[in-house]
Write a protein that binds this DNA or RNA. Sequence first.
DNA 1: TAAGTGCGTCGTT
DNA 2: AACGACGCACTTA
Length: 174
Amino acid sequence: MINRSNVAAAPHELPISTPEGQFIARYSKLGLCSLAFPSRTKRRPSDAISARPPAQIRRWHATASKALRLALAGRPPKALPPLDLSAGTDFQQRVWRALRRIAWGRTWSYGEVAQAIGNPRAVRAVGGACGANPIPVFVPCHRVLAAGNTLGGYSGGLNWKRALLQREGIRYAA
DNA sequence: TAAGTGCGTCGTT
DNA sequence: AACGACGCACTTA
């Protein structure tokens, strides 16, 4: 079941410049609702960034920008903006909430995530929900490894997963 | 050991 | 009805 009632039709879209490239953050009235990895493709003019976001969104964006730059530098962020995960199905939201309990520098397996949400056999479905995570890095789906500490997949590309794990000092099976 | 196959399982499209 | 960011058993090389 999808709940779009809290998702603004046209969320504010703001860039975050990092040494790794320009991420795009999107904000609803509830908080950060999406974070996109740097894209090689040029943004179209129709995707223009809104001129002057409200003060609250500017504060959220400042927090998010700082947090992202810390994370990419290998330091755990001290504060995050509110995360708006309301666009997901009930199942996805349960998975995403569970992912937020994985500590910096630690990993869970897909099976452990499935257990954490009380649905121990929905292992494969958990993988699907991880792939649908709209806020990578802050909702740390990169900390979910396959059984035997193998890498598993990553919708943002395995290079990003490897990079994020490395910044947290996480080791996994070759 | 490493790589490949088959199947259970379940949320999403 | 088909498809996965899975996991496990089992077979082959």
